[in-house]
Every structure is written in structure tokens, then in C-alpha cells.
Amino acid sequence: MTLEDKQQEIIQEFEMFDDWMAKYEYIIDLGKELPLIDKNKKTNDRLIRGCQSNVWLDSTVVDGKLIFTADADAIITKGIIGLLIRVLSNETPESVAKADLHFINTIGLHEHLSPTRANGLLSMVQKMKMTALLNLDKA
């Protein structure tokens, strides 16, 4: 499944929900399911401090592909991280660097990635892309 296929799959999943609360119920479930980042990896250098909530992001390269794990102190933030990781993890650095995360807009969650939200998610995506750029030669 390509990165774009994954985005389309998420868009389809969200089409099932006709109101905001149902959408958030799903995101909260995703947040509860998200495999937690290894406890010993929740260090300050992996911390992305937001005004509202904090995010921890770890990345490794396995067989030329970027693997992201993350955690957040707020469950909705965590659920959205789950979506971002589903799309961006296990992809080559090149696809991550070039990824246009249009699904966030389509499913109506763009506010969480706006600079005004200050929940660490925008910084997280930026960090994921930066990691991809730094690992371009490892693909």
C-alpha cells in the first residue's frame, strides 16, 4: 500500500461518521490503541513541547524505511498521531519528505495541525520530515 493509498483508506474510514463526536470517538479509540513509545525513549530530546500537550517522537531506519513511534499526554493528540504514523511510518525517507498530508484536511482535522493549536503536532510532522531529509541517503 502506498502512502497515498493509506491516506485514501483513512478518508474512507472517516466518511462513515456523520458528526464530530463520532469522529472524535474514533480518534480517541485510536489514541487508546496506539502502541506506546518505549518508556526509556520518553526522554527530553524526543519531547516536542506544545503549549497544550506534549508529544514524544522516536524514529529509526529499518531496511531503508523510516519507522516512527510516538506518544502524547493527551489522548486526542495521540489518536491523530496514530493516523500520522499510519501514513508516514514504514515509508522511504523520500516519500516521507515529499508527502502531502492532504487527508488531515479532508477529514477535517487540519485545526490540529495549525500553528495556532500549539499541541505539538505540527512540530511533530516537521520533525518527521526533517528526519526523512536527514536520512535520504539511507534509502
Binding site: 463526536m21 472524535y24 500537550s53 499526554d73 493527551a74 489522548i75 486526542i76 493528540t77 499541541n119
Partner: peptide, 11 residues
């Protein structure tokens, strides 16, 4: 987390 309650109240 307070942020989660605030987000759901907003909606």
C-alpha cells in the same frame, strides 16, 4: 488531559 476535554467541548 485538559486538552482532550476542551477539544470535545469545542465540538
Amino acid at each position: 488531559h485538559p486538552f482532550d476535554i476542551g477539544t470535545l467541548l469545542d465540538k
